[in-house]
Each structure stands twice: as C-alpha cells, then as structure tokens.
Design a protein around this nucleic acid. Sequence first.
DNA 1: CCAAGTATATTCACTAGGCGGTATACATAG
DNA 2: CTATGTATACCGCCTAGTGAATATACTTGG
Lengths: 206, 206
Amino acid sequence: MAKAQKSTRDTIVAAAEKLFYAEGIRAVSVDAVAEAAGVTKRTLYYHFESKDELIAAYLEGRDQPNLKLFQTWFSSGEGDLATKVEAVFVNLARAARHPKWKGCGFLRTSAELANMPGHPAIRIGAAHKKKFEAWMAETFAEAGAGEPDVLAKQILLLLDGSFAVVLLHRDPGYMETAGRAAATLVRVALGGAHPRASSERAAASF
Amino acid sequence: MAKAQKSTRDTIVAAAEKLFYAEGIRAVSVDAVAEAAGVTKRTLYYHFESKDELIAAYLEGRDQPNLKLFQTWFSSGEGDLATKVEAVFVNLARAARHPKWKGCGFLRTSAELANMPGHPAIRIGAAHKKKFEAWMAETFAEAGAGEPDVLAKQILLLLDGSFAVVLLHRDPGYMETAGRAAATLVRVALGGAHPRASSERAAASF
DNA sequence: CCAAGTATATTCACTAGGCGGTATACATAG
DNA sequence: CTATGTATACCGCCTAGTGAATATACTTGG
C-alpha cells in the first residue's frame, strides 16, 4: 500500500535530514536544503511554513526508525536482560565508528536550540526519548526488576551520555564502557542484593 | 599577582561567555558580543583574530572554574565515597533549576561544531572533560576501587548524560537519578561482589 | 468527450537586513 | 615618533522569507 514514489515533500525532508545531521541546524541555510533537494527555495516554502517547521519535520522523520533500530539491537543480544541492554551499546559503538556519524540528532538539536525551550523540534526530541524510556521501563517491569522506571531513566542517561561524550572525544570505546555500566545496573536491579538495593533512599541525601 | 583591573580583552570574553552560553555559538554574532562588551567590533578584532578564537577563549575561561565547582560539591558530600560522588549530581540538579541554566557549555559547543572536528573549542572541551575524568580516576584509585579508570569514565558518562537529558526535558530530577546510578556503580566497584564484579569481561560480548 | 475553470505545485526574481571580517584613521602612552 | 589600542565606516556575501506569474492536474458543465 501507499505508492513508493517519493513526493516532493519527502525529497525535501530527506535533503534536510542529510544536511542538518551532517552540518548542524543553524549552519545549514534553507537555500542549501532547497538546492540539495533539487527544488527552488520558493517550492520549499510552499511545503513548509518556515525553517523551524522543516527542522521539526526532519526530527519527526527520525523518530520511528531510530526506535526500531534500538529494538533490533536489543533483540540481537543473546543472553540475559543485562546482555541485551549491553548489546544496544555495543551496536551503537559500531555505528559511531562510521565516519559520517555525528552523534544524536535529537540531542544536538536540543543543544543548538537551547535558547528556544518551547521549539517544536525540542518537543519532538523530548517525546522521542520518552518513548525510548517507556519501552525500557516496560521491558524491565516485565522482567521483574525493582524500580523499573528508575532503571530505565538510568539506561537512558548512559545512552545519551555516550552520545555526548563520544561526539566530544570521537572515541566510541566510551559506548562500550557505558554498556558495561548499564549491564551492571540491570544486574543490581534484578539480582538485587549487595549494595543497598536502592530502595528506601528514593530522594538522594541532601 | 596579576592586576584585578579588568582588561578590555577580559571584558570581551565575559560578554562572549554570557551570550554564547545563553544563546548558542552560531546564534550570537560578533557584533552582538562587541556591543554587549561596550566596544566596537574593530576593537574586538584587535584582540581576537576570528570568531573561532573568541569561542575558544570563552571555553578556556570556563575550564578551571567548572572543575573547582565539581570538586567543591564533591567535598561537601558527607559520608562515604559513593555519597560524595552523588553529592556532585545533587548539587548539579540544584544548579540546573536556575532559570538561566542551559546545560554544559562544552557539550553544547561540541554539538554545534560537530561538523568541524578539529576546532580549537572542541579540543578545549575534550581536555576539560579529560581533566574531570582523571580527577575521578585518581580519587577512585586512592579509595582502592577495582578498575578506577573504567569507573571514572562511567561517572563521566552519567554526568554528561544528565546534562544532555536535562537540557532536553528540563527536568533536573534526572540528575538525582543519575546520582543514584553513580553511587550504585561506585559501591559495586568498592564493595565489589554480587553482580559478576566486572573484571574479565573487558570487551563486551560481540 | 471535450472545453472551461480551478486547485495544486512550481519557478524566477526580489527584499531588507544580518553576517564575519577589514581599510583607514585617530588617540594615547612610553 | 612609535607601539598599542580604539573608533567610524564600509565590503561582499549570505540569510530567512515573499510577490507575482506560471505550469500541471483534476474537476465540472455542456
């Protein structure tokens, strides 16, 4: 169903995605996107009201594919839950070794637009990360982990941390280190034993 | 030593810091920095060769103060090592609740300049984070933690992850969650016991 | 079954202002 | 009188966004 024939709008979004991800939002002009898409700027502005709307469309288009990718990586992990979580990080490290890798488009956009807190693109990014977190929380809950919501947030923190750190140092090894940390946290939450199993100190000390 | 009298150069850097941090690098023009500093653009270009050099000076100026702040927060934690590490995150959460907080200037800059990997500002940011990591590693080594270098990287990942996540969601609660994760990892590395104490699976499974 | 009309999609040419950076000249201090 | 620092004015280019005309595709009337 749905003809595969690429509409003009899709062509523009595809060009925007490539450029925005490679160069950054503010570094790429609307003219550049239009030229890369093979249309005039006026045509672009027929399909999008503003550059901001184009940015939003770019991220909107990355939401589902990215989530699917994480889920595929997770499923590919052979072993217990901790190993599957770690597999996400190992695969991410592999992806980060590709020369065109430039971090997480959602996080980079939120960094660039930090002075526009309500920007639609930021809301889309926030929703994307919330979906990841919800998926993780559900997975942990099914496995019977203590405080699955907290654990999900911690995995997200390690994931986004590795995006940020690897972008800065250009050393994907950090992702594998993050994966080990994630696996440790999962095992503590599951096997739950040795280091004060994390309950009943819910708020942090001071 | 060193007269406190603010030189023109320092005034410019101070103005650049305020604007770059609040609005982002590419969103702020050289004219805007000059005006905020109360000098003409030509004067600014007498003290700095280019905008890139000004960006580098901005981050250079944040290096030591930021590190000192982390160390102060760490020392303020009353209790064992894990509690002191957690204190860094708790204090960071408090800072992040300030309305002018806009994440980590180093990480945001590296996100904005992701298409210029060798940029001086990125090198300064990388060096800054390495200093943090080295300080953590040394602290953990003194405490006799297993694999202090790995643990230091994991704390850094949680720290930078919380910068990224909180910038996106505007929910400093994530920092406290990261602090709990950090404390757990420290306890596992110190008390070292229950969940396969992390040695001898150094590389990740596949 | 074709003509007229209309909605969609696209183009060229343009604006008004902002951008990083500079040529030149002037002040002040040693 | 020279070195350091500051100012005015400017350059060429790029920026997001637009006005008006046009081409294509679908409807509708006869």
